[in-house]
Design a protein around this nucleic acid. Structure first.
Lengths: 77, 77
DNA sequence: GATCAATGTAGTAGACGTACTACATTTCGT
DNA sequence: ACGAAATGTAGTACGTCTACTACATTGATC
């Protein structure tokens, strides 16, 4: 199992569901394996910077909107 | 030698020199080996996302200001 | 309740990122 | 010209990222 180094938080699942697409569809759009998206969403490991840039670009948001070293505040603040 | 996958461009050297600090100093501030900074500046490989976030945070700029999959336009445009 | 899509789990394998050591080269102050 | 600091090059080692295959689980639909 992929271990836990510095924990990284992300909003991939949120953004993806917001767009109404499946993991497989996102994976295809990104050109990665669909399991890779699963691993990322579950936070089992951090993506490479290149993949992170692709993801942010796909969702048309800054990298910091998708990934953060600090936990994201809940939407219902 | 680290190979060349999808080429990634960065402005680490620029930002660092702008701050007037050495690679060793930057490396210490980031908590990485000073050779790692050298590799990154020369574009020999891309940093992990976590390191990229640290670097952007250190320079107080968005990740996209430091790293890009497209070449940065020359300052003297 | 059988089926299908979406997601989770498990395991192998290869490429990449980082640490680290050592030495060469360049640059700069004096 | 000398020494010191900064940078570049070379090589090893190890952990993480990603691909991929296969199977289990869940949820919806018929």
């Amino acid at each position: 199992m992929p271990s836990e180094s510095p924990p990284l938080h992300n909003r991939i699942a949120m953004l993806r569901v917001e767009r109404g697409i499946s993991r497989r569809e996102l994976a295809e759009a990104l050109g990665v394996h669909y399991q890779t998206v699963g691993y990322l969403e579950r936070g089992e490991y951090s993506p490479s910077l290149v993949l992170a840039l692709q993801i942010a670009e796909f969702f048309a948001v800054p990298v910091e909107t998708v990934f953060s070293r600090r936990p994201f505040p809940p939407l219902g603040g």
